[in-house]
Amino acid sequence: MKPAPFTYHRARDVAGAIALLAELGEDAKYLAGGQSLVAMMNFRLARPAHLVDLGGLRGELAYVREDDGVLRLGALTTHHQVESAPLGPDFAVLREAMSWIGHLPIRTRGTVGGSLAHGEATAEWCLLAVLLGAEVVVQGVGGRRTVPAEELFLGFFTTALEPEEMIVEVVFPRPAPHAALTEFAQRRGDFATVAAAVDLDAGRVVLGGVAPVPLRVPEAEAVLARGGTFAECAEAAAAAIDPPADGDGGAGYRRALTRTLLVQACEEAMRR
């Protein structure tokens, strides 16, 4: 469980890091908090020839700015920084959701941008970004562009980012005072067997663990839009999905979890 050989580079500024990655090609990876990438490298499931460490950019890219109903998070903001940030009721859902991410040591290293770029389908940030309609600001050799979160995740660990593109900021453009995320895993801190997130203000429903990407469920959202009950909403979601089976449970079990968790998330969101 030691990584294959790689060359280590330390980035001094954003533009330099991007230029370096463009020059090194597809065998190069950015290293943010390292909480997923390094473990995969130790298993030799990931074998980048070059790592460009972004640790030196924290001064520039780690921040939490809430201003006039808009929240901006620097890409290198850690989960723990969000967890301990004085966020108002508009974005309390983010602060509360952080406790689902791994364990405290992981949260002190793992980053918002790293998690989104990794694109794991049950990752809390991926769900939250889709749920709250986040705009993901990415920078490449040609400058900056904004990718709506819903267009970021293309498939299993696959995102719309170009190899050299770096997430620099995540913008949550609208308040979400009545939103919640909940999950179930047999052990606290594990990848969710199913995660359910709901934003009652926007009428959005997003599920994790039931598809290769964080999944918006229009059928369930339609129930909310027409004023159906939370149970009806959950039932519609369970009927709409085609979840995978693995050691944590079969498709039927994931549907059952979806029913339970979505009602819980709706009730929690209501209470806020």
Binding site: F43, Q186, R187, D190, F191, G247
Partner: peptide, 24 residues
């Protein structure tokens, strides 16, 4: 500890081998 039908162990990390923690 589980195996696939070829005898490949399916618990190569603590993701799959679910040792409980103080939380449980």
């Amino acid at each position: 500890v589980t195996y696939d039908e070829q005898g490949e162990p399916l618990c190569a990390s603590f993701i799959d081998y679910k040792v409980p923690t103080a939380n449980e």
